[in-house]
């Protein structure tokens, strides 16, 4: 599948002391440079901050990178950030991969610096291996039919149908009984204001 060796840039984040306080990020950076396909390694204090992101964009152009690996925090936080960043740098956003060396490493192995550093190196190697095989992806776009179906004509269904109608959308409100109203219509007064249900 992989035609030629990719040109991978690895960005190792100190995250202040969050990562660098436990993991030897300098050692991780040295190690990353030895991995197949890696042509640039840049260590940053805060990769997610603007200067860090600018470094990524600059490196993509300077080193003609076609894959980016970011060793920092969990992708659950910054995957969208860095996807956007590499896209601005001219790469397909799906050619970016993250190695989670904070939540899954520095924060949970605080008493074992050597072990944490070894693990961080492994996580980077694993991400570089994955990045090597990443392919550009296009997100498909589909049109949306401009109408809504609301199933159930109780108080919730009625409210949803009215709001959607007020937003200007066509609404089908389906109720299996001969009248809408549901359980609410069978109540006398409703709390906390003691007003009528209907």
């Amino acid at each position: 599948m992989v035609q030629k060796l990719p040109r991978i840039g690895v960005f190792v984040c100190d995250c202040g002391l969050n990562i660098a306080g436990v993991v030897d990020t300098a050692e991780v950076s040295r190690y990353a440079a030895t991995l197949p396909g890696v042509v640039a390694v840049i260590r940053n204090r805060y990769t997610c901050a603007d200067p860090g992101q600018n470094e990524i964009k600059k490196a993509i152009a300077e080193h003609n990178l076609d894959r980016v690996v970011i060793a920092s925090c969990t992708p659950k936080i910054h995957e969208p950030t860095f996807r956007k960043c590499v896209a601005e740098g001219g790469l397909n956003p799906y050619l970016m991969e993250m190695a989670n060396i904070r939540e899954h490493c520095s924060w949970v192995h605080q008493a074992d610096r050597a072990g944490a550093t070894e693990k961080a190196k492994d996580l980077v190697r694993s991400s570089v291996a994955r990045a090597t095989c990443l392919q550009p992806q296009d997100e498909a776009i589909f049109p949306v039919t401009g109408a809504a179906l609301v199933i159930g004509g109780g108080v919730a269904g009625i409210q949803a149908a009215l709001d959607l109608g007020d937003l200007g959308h066509k609404v089908y409100l389906v109720e299996k009984e001969p009248t809408i109203g549901g359980i609410m219509a069978a109540l006398d007064k409703t709390y906390p204001t003691m007003d009528c249900s209907i």
Binding site: G153, A161, L162, L164, G165, D166, G168, H169, K170, V171, Y172, L173, V174, E175, K176, E177, P178, T179, I180
Partner: peptide, 9 residues
């Protein structure tokens, strides 16, 4: 509501 088509039963 002009936008809501009521389908009871």
């Amino acid at each position: 509501h002009p936008k809501v088509e009521l389908l009871t039963d």
